[in-house]
């Protein structure tokens, strides 16, 4: 797997930046891809590779004590929420191996639904999120 994954945003899809050396993952923008499974496949594969690496190489657990995940989504459709859950489920597997997973959920302060979407995902995956309303 590569150290970094960068997917540029489009009108219909979010920016995704994974940077292992900085221990940072970012999802930013809107998400209603034409083919949601295909769009998220590279991100899911990257995380699966990371999970396997941490599971099979003991020293990885010490070199990656924590991962910082930022969601800065302004909109995602219901099919995308299913893919975000799949991503979070891989992060939970990584968490179960001792890596601290810190999830920051940013949302427009006027957008109660986006806050609720965060809570739904957090509950579904059983990882606490930190919520950050952005004043608009």
């Amino acid at each position: 797997m590569n150290e970094t994954l960068f997917i540029e945003s489009t009108e219909f899809t979010p920016e995704i930046i994974f940077n292992l050396s900085q221990r940072k993952l970012l999802f930013k923008g809107v998400s209603r891809p034409e083919d949601v499974i295909k769009f998220y496949q590279p991100a899911i594969q990257w995380l699966k590779d990371l999970e396997q690496k941490i599971r099979t190489q003991a020293d990885m657990r010490y070199s990656i004590p924590s991962l910082h995940v930022e969601f800065r989504m302004s909109y995602f459709n219901s099919a995308s929420s299913k893919m975000l859950l799949e991503i979070l489920q891989i992060l939970r597997q990584i968490r179960e191996m001792g890596v601290e997973i810190l999830i920051d959920w940013y949302y427009d302060a006027n957008d109660e639904a986006m806050y609720e979407d965060g809570m739904d995902l957090s509950d579904a995956v059983d990882i606490p999120f930190t919520y950050h309303p952005i004043p608009s």
């Binding site: 083919d35 499974i37 219901s78 099919a79 929420s81 859950l85 739904d120």
Partner: peptide, 25 residues
């Protein structure tokens, strides 16, 4: 809310790429 959460967790994508969440949403 409950149905949304169970469908989110347990639902499968249909052949048309739907996650079964649209009407609930």
């Amino acid at each position: 809310r409950q149905l949304f959460r169970t469908t989110l967790t347990n639902g499968e994508f249909s052949s048309k790429g739907g996650a079964g969440l649209g009407f609930i949403e």
